[in-house]
Amino acid sequence: MNTAFLLICAMCLDAVLGEPEWLWSRVRHPAVMIGNLIGWLDKRLNRNAQRRLKGVVVVMLLVVGSLIIGCVLSLLGPVIEIIICAILLAQKSLVTHVRDVGDGLRISLAEGRAKVAMIVSRDTRDMTEAQVARSAIESAAENLSDGIIAPAFWFLVAGLPGLLVYKAINTADSMIGYRTEKYREFGWAAARLDDVLNLIPARLTCAMIVLLSGQWARWPEMVTDARRHISPNAGWPEAAMAKALNVALAGPRSYDGKVRDLAWVNGDAPREIGAPEVFRACRMLWAVWGLALGLLSVWVGVSFNL
């Protein structure tokens, strides 16, 4: 069956059902299982000498294991492929979490801080309203790329094996791909491979946001902002989202009590933002989802007519 058609079905299933609590409160989510495995490998291998080599071995195990599992699951038929793909996409849950931040800010700053703390790793206790809103929008832009467009892209390219490899490496990067003393060597391979796997999806996400917002004339500015970002990929969707919403993103933020003076994205735009801008970001998330669905539908239509 056409992979693009399977992806359309999976995207629609995810958009309708999202992450049903009744299910994942009873069984382990595949992403949780992957995370548990990575945590187990981290505890046993991330010590003593040759940590970089051990990290490379972990990545190889994740890639090979994901390819094998993906190939086996693919043999079970298109219905299973659609269900697993839907489970590993995150459109509805992403929009829900980001919208919760906007709803929280409408109630109080404290509620907004509590909600944004669920989706970002930075310090939230002393955030202003604008910082809460910026954090939510940045998370929306980055996760649009690596939680929706990237897994969809790799499923389209390589089916379930490609999707599972991407999710495994992306999860590994989120757990061990830090430039800290503990993970600088052990997480090196996971971080570098994640950069490679997100290279095309991040720029594709950026282009889709630009297409929807009509900001093509400002593309050179987005490229400049994206290259200033600490991540080689996350800066692209963030730069596009900042232009689309006409807001400033990034800038100084605190991690573990230490302030990092990061470059602004679209720094000349308004910085004092709040719940309305968060809700506009949610609408952009659905707009990109709709554009992706439309492009896939055209692809399927053309394929069936060939």
Rank of each mutant, 00 (worst) to 15 (best):
I119G: 03
D123L: 04
V132F: 06
M118R: 14
D103K: 08
S135D: 13
A130R: 03
W154Y: 11
D103P: 00
V116L: 09
V157H: 08
S121M: 00
E142Y: 03
L105K: 05
S145T: 01
S145W: 00
A130I: 07
T128I: 05
V101P: 06
A110K: 09
A140V: 03
I148Q: 12
L109M: 08
V98A: 05
V98W: 05
A136E: 11
F155Q: 07
A133C: 03
R106P: 00
R99F: 01
D126C: 12
D100Y: 01
A152T: 07
T124A: 12
A133G: 03
R106L: 15
L109F: 01
I148F: 15
V95C: 13
L144G: 05
F155E: 06
F153K: 11
I149Q: 02
T124S: 06
A152W: 04
D123K: 00
L160C: 04
K115W: 00
Q131F: 00
V120P: 08
A152K: 09
W154P: 12
I149H: 05
V157I: 15
G147R: 08
L94K: 12
V98F: 04
L144K: 03
L144T: 05
L105A: 07
G159V: 11
A141S: 14
L109H: 02
F155T: 10
G147L: 10
R106W: 02
V95D: 14
D103C: 01
H97F: 00
A141D: 12
D103W: 04
A133D: 12
V95S: 15
E111H: 04
S108D: 13
N143M: 06
F155I: 07
R99K: 15
R134D: 09
Q131M: 14
A140E: 06
I137Q: 06
S139T: 15
I119P: 08
I137G: 04
M127Q: 14
V98C: 11
A140R: 01
G104W: 03
L105H: 05
G104R: 02
A150R: 01
L109R: 11
I107P: 02
A141N: 08
T124W: 01
A110W: 00
W154G: 06
L144W: 12
L144P: 10
N143K: 11
W154N: 02
R113V: 13
E138D: 12
T128M: 09
E142C: 02
R106A: 09
N143Y: 01
D123Y: 07
W154D: 03
I107E: 15
